[in-house]
Design a protein around this nucleic acid. Sequence first.
RNA 1: GGAGCGGAACGGACGGCCGCGGCUCCCUUGCGGAUGCCGAGGAAAGUCCGGGCUCCACAGGAUAGGACGGUGGGUAACGCCCACCGGGCGCAAGCCCAGGGAAAGUGCAACAGAGAGCAGACCGCCGAUCGGCGGCAACCUUCGGGAAGCCGCAGGAGGUAAGGGUGAAAGGGUGGGGUAAGAGCCCACCGCGCCGGCGGUGACGUCGGUGGCACGGUAAACCCCGUCCGGAGAAAGCCCACAUAGGGGGGGACGAGGAUCUUCGGGUCCUCGGCGAGGCGGUCCGUCUCGCCAUGACUCCCGGGUAGGGCGUUCGAGGCGGUCGGCAACGGCCGUCCCAGAGAAAUGGUCGUCCAGGCGCCGCAAGGUGCCUGACAGGAUCCGGCUUACGGGCCGCUCCGGCA
RNA 2: GCCCCUAUCGUCUAGCCCGGUCCAGGACGCGGCCCUCUCAAGGCCGAGACGGGGGUUCAAAUCCCCCUAGGGGUA
Length: 160
Amino acid sequence: MRQAPSPRVVSGVTAGYDPLVASEDPIVPSLRLPSGARIRHGREVRRTFDHGRPSGSGPVVVYAFDRDDGAPPRLALVVGRRWGGAVTRNRIRRLLRESFRTARAELPTGFDLVLLPRDPFEKRRMQDVREDLVAAAHRAARRFRREGPGTPRPGRRRRR
RNA sequence: GGAGCGGAACGGACGGCCGCGGCUCCCUUGCGGAUGCCGAGGAAAGUCCGGGCUCCACAGGAUAGGACGGUGGGUAACGCCCACCGGGCGCAAGCCCAGGGAAAGUGCAACAGAGAGCAGACCGCCGAUCGGCGGCAACCUUCGGGAAGCCGCAGGAGGUAAGGGUGAAAGGGUGGGGUAAGAGCCCACCGCGCCGGCGGUGACGUCGGUGGCACGGUAAACCCCGUCCGGAGAAAGCCCACAUAGGGGGGGACGAGGAUCUUCGGGUCCUCGGCGAGGCGGUCCGUCUCGCCAUGACUCCCGGGUAGGGCGUUCGAGGCGGUCGGCAACGGCCGUCCCAGAGAAAUGGUCGUCCAGGCGCCGCAAGGUGCCUGACAGGAUCCGGCUUACGGGCCGCUCCGGCA
RNA sequence: GCCCCUAUCGUCUAGCCCGGUCCAGGACGCGGCCCUCUCAAGGCCGAGACGGGGGUUCAAAUCCCCCUAGGGGUA
């Protein structure tokens, strides 16, 4: 069984997605806005990649980096060309982003999160993606808090 | 009903809830919240052509290089579109064609074949006031024989391009005459070339005359002719902010005249000239800018730093409707509309009803019900095209079959 | 986004500019046989490719067009 901050959210998640219930909950403030909640600079994405800690669950991989400011979590999406044309890549991106939006209150605060799809992504429904995202994010955040910032992977060569 | 051809569109519909990107307006110290409006495609794609735009001083000349190629139009322009001409394919509706020049030049054609570009004799056919052999033989005879000529056989200088055979291609086709056999050698028709008349803006068509066959293929081979093209590309480019401090390496040169100041060493300025670098991102000319004429500096290459914001950035060869001109592509005029502008990058998630198709179950049937499926595909500077990917239906036409 | 380049046996490559001699050559690897007591080495033999589709041409790996798949450059 997975640990969750609120039993009502747990029931909401397990009994089926119901946005109305979630929005009226005082513990979960808002389902809106991932606009300032996006990582806007390539530098910060790079930082999360190089010094964050990864963890995967199902078709989702999350890199977590603690900004240590207690603010709501922020998001970046990386979907490479290997996943197909622009339409299918957008489809994956939107699914991940929607999962992030609806699950934002359940995600660890103060973290920058970079989301990547992993291999069995074909034909995944949003509910499953959302559950995997929450699980992976918490595992990555725990690992970051335990082990601290990591070092860049040596195998990957970057330009500039 | 079947097979096929052409064309114009469309790209599931409606709603609830939670969201996203712009602009607007209101609240807010601010993060942000709230109102209203707008928010992907026919291909947004491939980046294959043509332009706008920006920078390279101007975009000049020559050359290299590249693209295009029936004719006439359309267009900002095109390699696109329309109409027509010619050729090819199809019973037809229709479709396809890089469709100038091979009597300017150069080159190429493997293998096969006798011969492949001012061609050629392998088989075959023919064959001399050519001889040989055999047979017959007018006639002559000294009765031994001789002999023109005829027939046959093998040979034969040579003739021949009809036939066989080779090839992708063998130097007009069919028929007749002609000949030793043949051959445009001659004739008729067809084709081809040339000349002229007529029609057409023209490509070309058509009619008549004439030549006597001579010009084979390939130019998506080099090439010739005609037309067009300067280069780079929005990560173009412009501005602000921030930042580095001048780190390493390379390059080059001869002045003359005048004015003026002078402490007579020289300094400053101007003109001409010379030199260098850079721009015109193939080259040369031409030209411009800067610098130098013994020195700071100029310039090139490498290295280092910064990489945040704004403009470009969306009103445009624009869409829709009408009308007029035109066979049409398209254009003129009038009216009307504002129609995505992001920047690690917006159209999504979920639920329901309906629509279309498929499968299963119930039912005699009408129908009911459950499940599944609903293509190709997402703006990134913008337009005009082309090409490629793709769903079901509609309209018109052709051919075949059946019924009336 | 914009601008370029490449594609030939399992792998690395030659041939392409200037079409035929190509049934596409070589090396490594692979399979079989010989040699050896056995393995390696060596020798002999063999299988194996022009990314796909159309066009030009008598003839295309080669020339032209369109797709597909890889790779590179660029503030």
